[in-house]
Amino acid sequence: MSRCATRKIARFGVALLVAGGLSACGNQQDYHHSVYMLVDTSGTYSEQVGKAQNVVNYLLGTLQPGDSLAVARVKSRSFSEKDIVAKVALDTDPMQVTAQKKAFAEKINQFAKSTGSANGSRYTDISGGVIQGAEFLRETGAGRKTIIIFSDMQEELDYKTVRDFPIKLDGIRIIALNVTKLETDNIDPRRYIDRLDWWEQRALAAGASEWKVVNDMEHLDRVFSTRG
């Protein structure tokens, strides 16, 4: 008997048996997880894209059926759907999920190769990327929403780009990942601390549920170990 036929028979039998049991347990709250990852491709930070690929692979291993993931680049102006490198809403069938994850990993691999060989953008529009990410996450309707900013968090905008207005990040968790220290930070560490403080205040003021800075990739386990 083919696998498909076996699955169909099993699906029918199980559906009959568990229908009654599950009918009383209506899922009112959405426990899915949506992650939007921003990868800084500006200046010298574009060299870190290999690390970003590892993080994406880790996320692919962590996310469960029904979850969503999108990876977008941060460049001079990032508030655009065109900057989304890859996105996926994982299916509920585990076999299908595996195929989706493989395809996603392949896209990210191509992105990493193309970014590694190209020059970084001149400016860094993190805010635009965050606004775009918040929109994407709201559309998914997931119960838990996370924006991962893989950047040094040094925003640099050209004179035409306007980002100094209040943004809305209600219920979204913001994680700044691999926030490297700049040359100027080494001269005066207060710049680094002040920069992170500014971002934290901005995120929390925008309604973010949580702000976290993770520089050690090993700590990602703690961040993504629990659901809900």
Partner: peptide
């Protein structure tokens, strides 16, 4: 069972419908 009843359905944050099934 997650392939039968859907792996993305949750009863609580840490309890999937597949596990209940």
């Amino acid at each position: 069972m997650s392939a039968m009843v859907g792996g993305g359905d949750y009863i609580t944050a840490n309890l999937r419908a597949a596990e209940v099934a």
